[in-house]
Simulated scan of single mutants.
Amino acid sequence: MKSFSSEIESNHLVEVNWADRWQVYQRLKELDIPCTCTANQPLKVEIGSPMTAVQLWSVIQRLTASRQDQILTLECCWKIANNSSNF
Rank of each mutant, 00 (worst) to 15 (best):
L31A: 10
C37K: 01
Q23F: 00
T52W: 08
N17P: 06
H12Q: 06
N11C: 06
T52G: 12
R27L: 09
T73R: 12
L63V: 04
L13I: 15
N11R: 07
M51V: 14
A39L: 05
L72S: 12
G48W: 09
W22T: 11
S49P: 03
E46W: 04
T73N: 11
L74A: 13
W78H: 05
C76E: 11
E46M: 05
C76V: 00
L31E: 15
W18K: 05
Q23M: 04
E75V: 09
E9I: 06
V59I: 10
A19K: 09
V16R: 01
I33S: 02
A65D: 13
Y25A: 00
I47G: 14
Q23N: 13
C35Q: 01
W22I: 04
Q70P: 05
L31R: 14
L63M: 02
Q61R: 15
R67P: 10
K29D: 00
I60E: 03
I60Y: 03
T38L: 13
S58P: 00
L28N: 02
E46A: 03
L63G: 11
V16Y: 00
W57T: 01
S49N: 03
S10Y: 04
C35A: 05
E15G: 08
S58H: 04
T38P: 03
E15L: 05
L28E: 03
I33W: 08
L13Y: 12
I47P: 06
L74Q: 09
L56A: 13
N17Q: 14
S66L: 08
E30C: 05
A39V: 06
E30P: 07
P50W: 01
I47W: 03
I71V: 09
K79T: 05
V45T: 07
Q23Y: 02
E15I: 13
S49M: 01
D20I: 00
Q41T: 10
L72G: 10
Q26W: 03
P42W: 12
N11S: 02
G48Y: 15
I60M: 15
L72R: 09
V54N: 15
C35K: 00
V59R: 05
D69N: 12
E9A: 15
E30D: 14
C35H: 00
Q70S: 14
P42Q: 14
L63W: 03
L13C: 12
V45D: 04
W78S: 13
T36F: 15
C37A: 07
T73I: 06
R21G: 15
A65W: 09
Y25I: 02
L31C: 10
Q26K: 11
R62I: 14
I80T: 04
D32P: 04
C77S: 12
Y25L: 01
A39P: 01
N40S: 14
